[in-house]
Computed example of a mutant assay.
Amino acid sequence: MAAKMEDSTRGSGDSSVSSSNMTEIPTVAQIIERQAASSESSAAGGETGPPGSLHHPGFALFKQGAEARLYRGTFLGRPTVLKERFSKKYRHPRLDEKLTTKRTQGEARTVARARKAGIPTPCIYFVNYQSNCIYMEDLRCATTSRDYIVAVQSVGAGDSFRALQPIMDKIGKILATMHDGDIIHGDLTTSNIMLKQDASATDPEVVLIDFGLSSVSQLAEDKGVDLYVLEKAFLSTHPNTETLFRVILKSYTKHSRKSKDVIKKLDEVRLRGRKRTMVG
């Protein structure tokens, strides 16, 4: 009888271990659904977020960075993100106005160029150069690649690499298309690489956002620096993901017509970065 109980206990333990090893990796659609549910529960609990803007009626501030404020609302009946570049008080007013307008124009033109090259970006609805505001598509069914990588890694399952590999491959392909079109993003991070997936889609789509520091350049040096910025941001935000970034580079090399010179410059930039770190 004791032997039977022991066998039963051992069997029970084995099943619990087995179930813990079978932890399910969340999909992009599931992460988006969880985030939407969290937002709804916050609103139901009385957390309504920032109030509407006095300068932009119908829009509510939801994020502010060093260069711009982001508002969420509706424009021409569509869910819209309004990006407003604000003035810098430490600059001369005329210089500040000129720089702010130039950067707004540059961002709008680069996004248009990117979309023409086949790079998924939010659609721009309207640009107001007097107030330096860009009205663009609000990606509702989307999450940042940063949030998705963190969610997958937090599961702690051994096959997280297998789950993330196809997305890294897509990111590498998109970056190759962008650089072959001589577009430099200027601020590549996993927070500026979105993953979009609605209920009807089988696979997530990679969408690039925030071209505020973008430029156009044919130089392999500039493209190498672009990749280096992503690598540093990637590894500092997501520890122990060197193999994932190698998947991005492998895909980039496969799909870019100019990858040989760019990867060579990336190696040179890495070397300069290590020397700078050693010197302090």
Score class of each variant (00 low, 15 high):
residue 11 G to N: 10
residue 271 L to M: 10
residue 198 D to I: 00
residue 122 P to K: 10
residue 30 Q to S: 13
residue 247 V to Y: 06
residue 194 M to K: 00
residue 260 K to Y: 03
residue 42 S to F: 08
residue 11 G to E: 07
residue 103 R to C: 14
residue 240 N to F: 03
residue 268 E to V: 14
residue 29 A to V: 14
residue 102 K to G: 06
residue 122 P to R: 12
residue 222 D to P: 10
residue 225 V to D: 09
residue 184 I to M: 03
residue 142 A to S: 05
residue 258 K to S: 14
residue 223 K to D: 11
residue 227 L to A: 07
residue 63 K to D: 10
residue 88 K to D: 08
residue 96 D to W: 00
residue 119 I to D: 07
residue 16 S to G: 12
residue 215 S to E: 07
residue 270 R to F: 05
residue 224 G to P: 01
residue 181 G to M: 02
residue 48 T to G: 14
residue 103 R to T: 15
residue 65 G to L: 03
residue 224 G to M: 03
residue 94 R to H: 02
residue 99 L to E: 08
residue 221 E to S: 04
residue 196 K to H: 01
residue 188 L to K: 01
residue 27 T to S: 11
residue 52 G to D: 04
residue 55 H to T: 15
residue 161 F to Y: 05
residue 213 L to N: 09
residue 242 E to M: 07
residue 41 S to A: 06
residue 200 S to D: 10
residue 54 L to W: 06
residue 142 A to I: 04
residue 49 G to E: 06
residue 232 K to Y: 07
residue 224 G to W: 05
residue 259 S to M: 08
residue 228 Y to A: 08
residue 196 K to V: 03
residue 227 L to V: 11
residue 212 G to F: 14
residue 229 V to I: 08
residue 54 L to V: 06
residue 104 T to D: 09
residue 173 K to W: 13
residue 41 S to V: 08
